[in-house]
Design a protein around this nucleic acid. Structure first.
Lengths: 334, 334
DNA sequence: TTGTAAGCGTTATCAT
DNA sequence: ATGATAACGCTTACAA
């Protein structure tokens, strides 16, 4: 399509210097006499030179590329984390290759391999179900940061909110509002955060001397439809409830929808609380009470930390906390 | 971190063949005698060999990488398109580098340059505000597909729904339901789809002999809050309305919310129609009538077409149409 | 069918 | 401060 690629040799020739000097100018690695530097810069401008990142990566061993393994492009939470990661790379010279693991370990391992083939300098894993054994192997090969997932003995490289405590707080809030029969819509099986949220919910009930009723627990999948199904299930099984804690906002929307269809008022008859605080929740009718997760900030922290790790600098991870956003979908009862 | 990278030379030595033969086995480019092939494969397995994508790209001139320029990671529509693109790459050997243009031409051009530096084999542009002049230059340099954007004389490489017609249809639907005073919340300025939707709206009114009332048009930004502000504006200016057409679903949610806060019933007092059909809309209360846009499919078509273009094969683009999803937020009036 | 060898466009290691 | 020159790991003529 084009005449020919302009290389460092062309610049060297035009500026009457050696290729090495051109390289030095590009990389600002060692000082080059100002007069030469100027000629080189001019030559690069005139010829429209752009360095070939592949060649640089090959010889330098640094590809300036990071891998990002997400699990579900299109999920509001994960997309926000990814957005934060990519935003955190701005101006760093690094780019991100984004791949989708689809919450399947085999697929995850496969796409990680394609990332490694591309000589990525570091990797961010968002969620996922890769076994700890594989993770242990992986972290020996490449700088690694986990977001939305935890791993024993690897705390310094994990960015997460405390899902257990957050769910505990959400449930406790409902209890303080006088609720005793609190249903729960679980997130997808095998998702660490979903498990933690369930456990926090259970513990809050226990600490308040409230019995956990299996009929009031529904196995959802983080999509709205499962919130709808949850309500059907609860109603069918006949154990009354005055509040529902859904493990994310989309399921909470489904819950709210199902209540409406059965003319059960929210929050007067049933309070609903979600999780994540995706942007839409504040605009629902009624607006949704939820646990906010600072997803974009978490993503930014992830790339910042990863860049430090790659540079061999000490990194520190901010502590992220979920925060309760009380809105209209919950109220006192009793 | 690791002993040393296993290269093609190690394999060659271990299998007692030349590096070229190993390469042939990897690429299946020419037939290698089965016995040798087997030894090579074995050697690769035993040593855990993985080819270096940088080296391959450098010498072959094919990086097996595509660039994807989106404008707003975290936006439901764009994320779904990106999801489709990435999904469409599965099994092709290509990976995607995702960058964010933030709807700013300078930023877009800058990140496109970083993509070109990385020797991408093709580029998908989702939306964006790059001038046609720049696009013309760009498409001479690299295989290009546009999604969610159109360009004169470049129709064979653009994937889009007809926003004008879709908006026309949405507005016409409201008119057929008896509405005459139909407000419109516009999408962000300079966004091609927002402009088209506005034009379709205006044309539908015109064709039905309904006067367009400037006070009933609000300049939004595709975020929910602008839907809220739109209602304030309409009410303040005092021109009555019985329906609102928002240029996307998030703004429609804001509209719905604002109506609720003022005790204006939806749809009894005011009908609301959105655009995009993001997953949540079917679960709202009331569920939202909207124009569905097959975003994931469009993304998949984009990568399929791009791969064809790169391969020098003829490509054809399916025609995508928006489809009206009638739900509860609209009803007859008058 | 296979091997040899010349690159691909840089950076990095020496000297100078 | 600068210039040769050897890598980096692979593909691809060209020979054989």
């Amino acid at each position: 399509m084009q005449n020919r690629k302009v290389t460092i040799l062309d610049i060297a020739e035009r500026a009457s210097v050696s290729p090495a000097t051109v390289s030095r100018v590009i990389n600002k690695s060692v000082v080059v006499k100002e007069s030469k530097r100027k000629v080189v810069i001019e030559a690069m401008d005139e010829l429209g030179f752009r360095p070939n990142a592949l060649a640089r990566g090959l010889v330098s061993g640094r590809s300036m590329t990071l891998g990002v393994l997400t699990q579900d492009i299109g999920s509001p939470l994960y997309d926000n984390i990814a957005k934060g990661i990519i935003r955190g790379l701005e101006g760093s010279g690094y780019s991100a290759i984004l791949v989708d693991g689809l919450w399947r370990e085999n697929r995850e391992l496969e796409v990680i391999n394609t990332l490694l083939d591309r000589q990525i300098d570091g990797l961010v894993l968002i969620g996922g179900v890769i076994s700890e054994g594989e993770l242990t192997k992986l972290r020996k090969r490449i700088p690694l940061i986990l977001v939305g997932r935890e791993m024993q003995g690897w705390e310094d490289y994990c960015i997460n909110i405390d899902n257990f405590s957050a769910a505990y707080e959400a449930t406790k809030f409902l209890i303080e509002q006088g609720h005793r029969r609190i249903a729960h819509v679980k997130g997808s099986p095998n998702h660490q955060d979903a498990e933690q949220r369930f456990k926090g919910y259970a513990k809050a009930l226990e600490d308040s001397g409230i019995e956990l009723i299996p009929n009031l627990i529904f196995q959802g999948d983080f999509f709205p439809q499962s919130g709808v199904l949850a309500i059907s299930s609860f109603l069918e099984r006949g154990d009354g409830f005055s509040a529902v804690f859904a493990a994310n906002d989309m399921m909470a929307m489904g819950v709210r929808r199902a209540l409406y269809q059965r003319s059960i008022r929210c929050p007067e008859d049933v309070s609903v609380i979600g999780f994540d605080d995706q942007i839409e929740t504040a605009f629902l009718v009624p607006s949704l009470t939820t646990m906010r997760q600072p997803s974009v900030e978490m993503g930014m922290a992830a790339s910042a930390a990863l860049l430090d790790v790659i540079a061999g600098k000490p990194h520190d991870l901010p502590i992220f906390k979920a925060s309760l956003q009380v809105r209209e979908s919950t109220c006192r009862t009793g």
